[in-house]
Simulated assay, not measured.
Amino acid sequence: MRRPRVRLRRPRGTVEVASACVVGVAVIVLAVRVVVHAAAVLLDAWPVVPALAVLAGAATAWHTARSIAAGQAAAERLAVLRVTLAELDAGDDRVFEEALRSLLIRDGWGARRVGGRGDQAADVMGEHARLGRLVVQAKHTTVGGKVGVRVMYEVKGTAGPAHRARHAVVVTNGTFTRDAMAWGERHGVHWVDRDRLRRWAENGVALHELLELPARASRLGRAA
Results as ranks from 00 to 15, higher is better:
residue 120 Q to C: 10
residue 123 D to Y: 03
residue 124 V to N: 02
residue 154 E to N: 10
residue 149 V to E: 13
residue 150 R to N: 12
residue 165 A to T: 03
residue 141 T to E: 11
residue 143 V to D: 12
residue 143 V to S: 15
residue 166 R to D: 13
residue 169 V to L: 01
residue 135 V to L: 08
residue 165 A to H: 02
residue 164 R to L: 12
residue 168 A to R: 03
residue 133 R to L: 10
residue 161 P to I: 06
residue 123 D to S: 03
residue 160 G to V: 05
residue 170 V to T: 00
residue 125 M to N: 04
residue 163 H to C: 01
residue 127 E to T: 09
residue 144 G to T: 05
residue 134 L to C: 09
residue 156 K to E: 08
residue 144 G to M: 05
residue 164 R to W: 07
residue 148 G to V: 07
residue 164 R to G: 11
residue 148 G to S: 11
residue 153 Y to L: 08
residue 135 V to P: 05
residue 142 T to M: 10
residue 141 T to G: 15
residue 124 V to I: 10
residue 159 A to C: 07
residue 124 V to F: 03
residue 126 G to T: 06
residue 170 V to W: 00
residue 153 Y to W: 14
residue 160 G to T: 06
residue 163 H to T: 02
residue 150 R to C: 04
residue 152 M to P: 02
residue 152 M to F: 12
residue 170 V to I: 07
residue 163 H to M: 02
residue 136 V to Y: 05
residue 129 A to S: 14
residue 146 K to H: 12
residue 148 G to W: 04
residue 121 A to S: 14
residue 156 K to H: 13
residue 123 D to K: 02
residue 141 T to V: 15
residue 146 K to G: 01
residue 123 D to I: 03
residue 159 A to R: 07
residue 140 H to C: 04
residue 142 T to N: 09
residue 123 D to W: 04
residue 163 H to A: 01
residue 143 V to Y: 13
residue 145 G to I: 05
residue 161 P to W: 03
residue 147 V to G: 04
residue 167 H to F: 03
residue 134 L to Y: 01
residue 132 G to V: 03
